[in-house]
Amino acid sequence: MIKVEKLHKQYGGLNAVNHISFHVAEREKLVLLGTSGCGKTTTLKMINRLIEPTSGTIEINGKNVNHLNPTDLRRQIGYVIQNIGLFPHYTVEENIAVLPHLLQWNKPKIKNAVATIMERLQLPYDLYANKYPAQLSGGQQQRVGLGRALIAEPAVILMDEPFGALDPVTRATVRNEFLQMEEIQKKTAIVVTHDIQEAFEIGDRICFMDQGKIQQIGTAKEFIFHPANDFVRDFIKDQQFYLLLKSLTLNDIIHFLPQAIKKDEGMVIPLTESLYHVLDKMTSRGEDHTGWDTKNRINRQINFSSILGAIAQFKTHQSG
């Protein structure tokens, strides 16, 4: 879907982005992760040509973006940025309708599309359409920003620290809502963040950058079990356990869990659930569970000690 080849950007003598290449598959969410100044934002902005590359090519659906008119290109790509960048002199409705106006849709179509997307974003049209951005909370503003990016149904969306302006609590909520939206799930997305947890939560794959170069690109599991170098290992060190729980599912460790003593006891948990969620649920309920899979008819003991034991065995197994 998106193909980046030997992309390079030089500022003065500095290589902001240094000959990087990567692919993003259709519907995949790729996260560009790294500290500030690593080149992730520059890379993102070269994709919709807010920044022109020094050399290298970017193709979207086989078309070289440098052969397209930048304005037309950007109208086909959703774009969400950290400070949201809502137009303060436009109402919510006008903000969301900016692109349809530029594309000269007719009025009923615009209104219909705005109302639909606002409903999806849990911003009831009647309540919010005529409000100005300054009258909204941070989370609501972020949703309007998403609405503006999504209204023309772009196949690709680019997001630069999309939740960066929100407080941690709101941030987690909005992010979860975002990930569960059908509109998002069927899109190809490139998301820039400096937050490791966020990266692993959103990304199907993570592209970890430093000093303009890709240090490692891969899934969460690959990062944890096969870090490409010491730099990567060091970067994720403090988050190791969290990332492990987030990236592993019951399925991964199912063979290391002891068999249930009694069948069909406790609660049924889908095996695709991350270990983090499983432990989270158990913390709030405090009971043993049974992992249950209708297809394979597997019953396993699921409690704190069985999970921790299974993880240890899984790790040994991976490295062995």
């Binding site: 950007r74 950290q82 960048g85 990016a149």
Partner: peptide, 18 residues
Amino acid sequence: VDSTITESAFGVGMSQFQ
């Protein structure tokens, strides 16, 4: 004018003049 606002204006596909 806040640079994030002009950036998002360009990002949404407005021309220089717009």
